[in-house]
Design a protein around this nucleic acid. Structure first.
Lengths: 161, 161
DNA sequence: CATGAAATGCTTTAAAC
DNA sequence: GTTTAAAGCATTTCATG
């Protein structure tokens, strides 16, 4: 544990130009920076430098093409709450979960569950197999509760002002 | 409701070159396609055309720079299960939730809850205000259960082979 | 911090296989 | 589906304001 674990990560200094840049590049990572520049009324070099700064200070960390899981055959999306035998098992369980590629998100939570994950499997049977075989082998997991997503209504990033 | 709502979305035909392309562009949306081409041992035009095809058939839908919510002051991440008065309220509730920008993901689920959402707020107080004020005004919501994420262990996209 | 200018490199298209 | 070639743009850097 680091000393900084007791501090909140400080919000970055972001001005209106940064916000406008963020709005554009978080919607389309491949937009030419020169086009961003034209939309913002500044030079291309200014955008280049500001995006570099936003990366350096961690406001953005890279870019991704966004895949549609269903088109790769991943038709089942589920959330799962995990009860642990003891809270101290958290990090070893999290590490074991990281090794399962179908688990695409993992959080340490308050409330009923100690760990909360998002899972993407090809089928419901694939999900069942994952629960029955892979999860049961993980030391520290007491039991789990699964919520299958019948439909994703929407998904987006945090609002930028 | 569309007739196609009763069919599973078919997995796309993806060959090994597509997979290699996907692995690269889902990790870094701004990688030059010529660099992808060099890594794959084909021409730049081939990559250009294949990425276009992957977009056309919906295997990927665009690209995003990924923001770090904390750096924008969004320090509280939570999941919330929502109970509805009646299941038929689902779509009107989902539409109302879409208008709340702090709700960044919304699913129609099986299990204990009818709707399951991911929420990103600036503070715990901001989350409380959202629950007490914005959610209580939505017709059809019976009650909610909140799980605050103390720490995100990891987050990634679906595995590409 | 922003700019313009220059060098280098990338994107995009079309014709050909 | 892939290639090469060529034209048009974009990226990146740096000296300057």
């Amino acid at each position: 544990m680091k000393a900084t674990d007791f501090e909140e990560e400080k919000a970055a200094d972001i001005d209106q130009l940064d916000e406008k840049i963020l709005k554009l590049i978080t919607k389309n990572a491949r937009i030419p920076f020169l086009e961003v520049a034209r939309e913002c009324g500044v030079s291309g070099a200014a955008i280049h430098q500001r995006v570099q700064r936003l990366l350096n200070i961690g406001v953005v960390h890279g870019s991704e093409f966004i895949v549609n899981p269903q088109k790769l055959g991943y038709n089942t999306c589920a959330y799962m709450g995990i009860y642990l035998d003891k809270a101290k098992y958290h990090s070893q369980v999290a590490e074991a979960l990281r090794k399962i590629p179908e688990i695409i998100e993992c959080h340490y939570t308050t409330g009923a569950y100690a760990i909360f994950v998002k899972i993407q499997t090809k089928t419901n049977k694939h999900l069942k197999r994952l629960i029955d075989e892979e999860l049961q082998d993980i030391e520290g997991i007491a039991r789990t509760e699964t919520f299958i997503s019948l439909e994703m209504d929407f998904k987006r990033q945090v609002p930028i002002k």
